[in-house]
Simulated assay, not measured.
Amino acid sequence: MSKAQSSKMSNSTTVTEFLLIRFSEVWEYRVLHTMLFLLMYFATLMGNFLIVTVTTLDKKLHVPMFFFLRNLSALDMCYISVTVPKACVIFLLDNRVISMAGCAAQIFLVLWFAYIELMFLTIMAWDRYVAICQPLHYSVIMNPWLCIQMTLATLLSGVVSAGFLTGNTFQLPFCQSNVVHQFFCDIPSLRKLSCSDTLSNEISIFIFAVIIDGACFAFITMSYIRIFSTVLKFPTRGERGKAFSTCVPHILVVTIFISSGAAVYMKPTYNSPTIQDMITSVFYSIVPPFLNPIIYSLRNKQIKEAVRKMMRKKLYLGKC
């Protein structure tokens, strides 16, 4: 560390807590932002809870595709709960403080859930590839034991990755300011508060993004290229339309998730904080959990039929 940095640190107060910021300080806008966040939050919880319930109770849906969809829905309820409730509190109340431990926990959970989300989306793309391109071998390849193994491997590797990146970030000394220019704690915003060299942290984030995000995106892209090449050979337009309607929304969610995350996390530290960074972060922390139940329930005939069956059963029991 240089003498200038050492002198700067000695003349600064070490940060022990952080202040999150809002999209606006105007009260009317703060209320509007809270309402929008809460609407998305409750819609996400209800939609994903419905998918978890239906895919658990209906034995016809106990197949690999819905096994991962059920896990994704459970994950999304946890993922969005890490950021939105706290954001709504700082939007409405004057207390914008988050402790050092709370900030570390928020960063770890966001990274962990985002990692699992990406892995599940990648596995689901592979599941669709096997189902469409190798239908005769589907039950052999996507057996229950393999599904459980992939899920456990994803959870454990996510803990290691999120733990490493969180620990690497909190090794940095924070003594310049305690204002995090974001509505939740994330690494890029926190890194700007460090009074030491953050190059190693930026490199680790870059390597992680290139290896994990790049590999998953490449795998998903290759899977869908093969899926589309197979779908185009289907004899009827109806079969092609059904396959495309299943795959295209999945590609949309993956693209939004990866591109928005990369835009925030791979942005150089010296760039000044802007409202665009906060808006972009919404697209990887809130939008995917919100969109997933819409895409996978409203557009899936099996899910819709299972919901109708469950509702008819409830109405019948209510009459009795």
Rank of each mutant, 00 (worst) to 15 (best):
V287Y: 05
T14Q: 13
G163F: 01
A101W: 15
M1G: 14
I187K: 03
H33N: 14
T274C: 03
D58K: 01
V84H: 07
C247P: 02
S189H: 00
F91A: 10
K3Y: 15
I279D: 09
I207Y: 06
P288L: 01
T280I: 06
A243Q: 00
S272T: 12
N71I: 08
K60G: 15
P293Q: 06
I220R: 11
G241V: 09
S259N: 04
M278P: 14
M124G: 02
I251K: 06
L39W: 10
Y41V: 05
F42Y: 04
I294C: 08
N201Y: 05
T83G: 05
H33R: 09
N95C: 12
F206Q: 13
A162D: 05
I132R: 06
K314H: 03
K242T: 02
I205H: 11
I251L: 13
Q302N: 09
F174S: 01
H181A: 08
V248S: 04
T16K: 09
G167H: 12
R22N: 01
I80D: 00
S297W: 13
G241Q: 01
S24Q: 10
V15N: 07
S139R: 15
F23D: 08
S200G: 14
F228S: 02
F228A: 04
F108E: 00
D94W: 13
V264N: 04
F174K: 05
P268Y: 02
K192R: 14
D58Y: 01
I251D: 04
L57H: 13
I98L: 05
H62C: 12
K60Y: 13
K309L: 06
F18G: 03
K313H: 09
Q5K: 07
L38W: 05
A104G: 08
P173C: 03
V31M: 14
I203H: 11
Y79N: 06
L155C: 00
N178Y: 10
V31T: 04
P135E: 14
S161P: 08
A218N: 12
N178Q: 10
Q106T: 13
F113R: 00
Q106D: 07
T166L: 10
D277T: 07
